[in-house]
Design a protein around this nucleic acid. Structure first.
Lengths: 327, 327
DNA sequence: TTGAAAGCGGTACCAC
DNA sequence: GTGGTACCGCTTTCAA
């Protein structure tokens, strides 16, 4: 099987404890010796054995990500980035797609240094983990698990406030109207709250439901909406994909943005820049989330005490998709 | 930190080697002793330490899945199922979303028992792994890595043959027309070959390109196609998602299936049953693929020699979406 | 049927 | 600076 440090030691004519030090770049080994050992290691294809290393050092330099809903593409971009940041910090990311309890057990057995949990729904699990757990998304029902999330409610409030400042009163919201999904419900709460704070009366017609947050759904919903007598002056879209569909429908109806209709989109994913129009967005930039999550994971590993719940503040990214009705 | 077998041994008043045997359900331990040990283990929350175990047994009961393109949702359903089958066999699945080389290294360090590699494109990597690797998708450029894949070409040939048998001659293909993606290119080759074998002349208008294989793309492409003078008698859709869009467009034009137009879809995902129409499909059932991949992984672990390339044969699943023009 | 002990591949401490 | 060695948690002979 594999090459071990003892093999390297033999080749190099040194003891294997020296090899160990050299490989860990310890200052206790002379440069030439170190170089020689490293060269030999490379040459004979040495790969450190994680099992042995973490057995003694009680550290695996590995973060376990629990992502039971891989079929929902929502988090994949975020996970990709977090993975990148963790790699930069010398950590390896391993993903489990099992049920939460199974995954927690697996990662505990593997002695990962921390677990990052993605939750989409309020499920009724309970787990115990000797490894620290950090959760992204809705607040966990395990009070001891710190939760990080984007403040969706605030984002929507800001969107409404921004539109109101520009003179918009006929505002509609296109998104998933679901009680099941607390993430979506939160956005709607923010929308309503924003209306209230700006003295815009709410009515049910202001909520245009879509079955899912895909481009296609946004397209269909917008077309149906535009077929109606009364058109809004502004649309708040609840996701980037949705926005793509909305834009297409608007184009098909030969309406101009922001001339005929204004639009502001949730999600600060970098892709917005690739859209045909320059779209104003509101949300926590993906990269901000990724950095924040990474830092909190690393802090947690170092044993720092965390706040129970961290809500990341959204930012408005003003572009040219919202018309100022006062000017 | 964690509870070890020594803790259990103390509680049970036996030696820790007896505990080890009991936990592995060895026949060398008397039933009552075993029961007692198991009870204590459960009670004090014992979790075996994977590192220690795999260090000595050289087995981790873990399969590493390399899936660098999580953002492409295509494989997630398959991975979910494979994960399930492997779990049934006592294996844990760990996913890496890193670049292939990094992931192979990681999994080698972790001493997983086998690696399952998902490839989407012909990239020019090379890796060496002391752990056996099995690849799903296009043939790897590492000749020693066995590859499993669905025979897409054959599937498309069968689709054409089936339609031809029913009297169809104006057949179009809706899908991604990409040289980049060998999976898609293969389908088109099969389509053309099917036409040829059935003496239907091919023309470029028979290929309707879509930018991606999403529902939305199918919808738009079909609408554009239906706006034309000449309508085909049958459509071959290259993916399930695409089909959803196609159906919607057809519905919008008040055409009936299979009265006005026939349709056969690639992909034998179980979701087709949930569609509004009863759709004839062709492809290798997802479950067949999952089982096959699992078995090959397990065989590989046991050191059985594998064929270099395994192409899974597609099945036609006849429903009511194709009209018999002869009757 | 149970226990003692070697050793898997490393790390880290101690002595030289 | 380098080498010797105990030990991390567990499996697996081998002896009792």
């Amino acid at each position: 099987m594999g090459v071990t440090i003892k093999d390297i030691a033999k080749h190099a004519g040194v003891s294997y404890s020296t090899v160990s030090k050299a490989l860990r770049d310890s200052p206790l080994v002379k440069e030439p010796t170190k170089k020689k050992i490293l060269a030999i290691a490379e040459e004979i294809g040495y790969q450190p054995n994680v099992a042995a290393r973490s057995l003694v050092s009680k550290k695996s330099n590995t973060i376990g990500v629990i992502w039971p809903t891989i079929e929902r593409v929502a988090h994949s971009a975020l996970i990709t980035r977090i993975n990148q940041y963790l790699e930069d910090q010398g950590y390896t990311t391993l993903v489990s797609i099992n049920r939460i309890n199974t995954a927690v057990t697996t990662f505990n057995r593997f002695q990962v240094d921390a677990i990052l949990l993605f939750e989409d729904t309020h499920s009724d699990y309970r787990f115990s983990s000797s490894v620290p757990v950090v959760s992204y998304g809705i607040a966990s029902n395990q009070p001891e698990v710190p939760t990080i999330d984007a403040n969706r409610r605030e984002a929507m409030k800001e969107a409404v406030a921004y539109l109101h400042k520009l003179g918009h009163k006929e505002i509609i919201y296109i998104g998933e109207i679901s009680e099941q999904d607390p993430l979506q419900a939160d956005k709607i709460k923010g929308f309503k709250q924003g209306l209230m704070e700006n003295n815009i009366p709410f009515s049910d017609e202001m909520l245009i439901p879509v079955p899912e947050l895909e481009q296609y759904d946004g397209y269909i919903a917008t077309k149906a909406m535009l077929d109606k007598e009364k058109k809004p002056s502004a649309i708040i879209s609840s996701s980037y994909d949705c926005t793509k569909g909305i834009l297409l429908a608007i184009k098909e109806y030969n309406l101009s943005i922001p001339g005929d209709i204004s639009i502001i989109s949730y999600d600060n994913v970098p892709q917005v820049e690739k859209l045909e129009y320059s779209i104003t967005t509101v949300g926590v930039p993906l990269d901000t989330i990724a950095k924040e999550v990474t830092n909190i994971l690393l802090d947690t590993i170092e044993g720092k005490q965390m706040d129970q719940s961290i809500l990341l503040q959204p930012e408005i990214n003003v572009a040219k998709s919202c018309r100022n009705l006062y000017s």
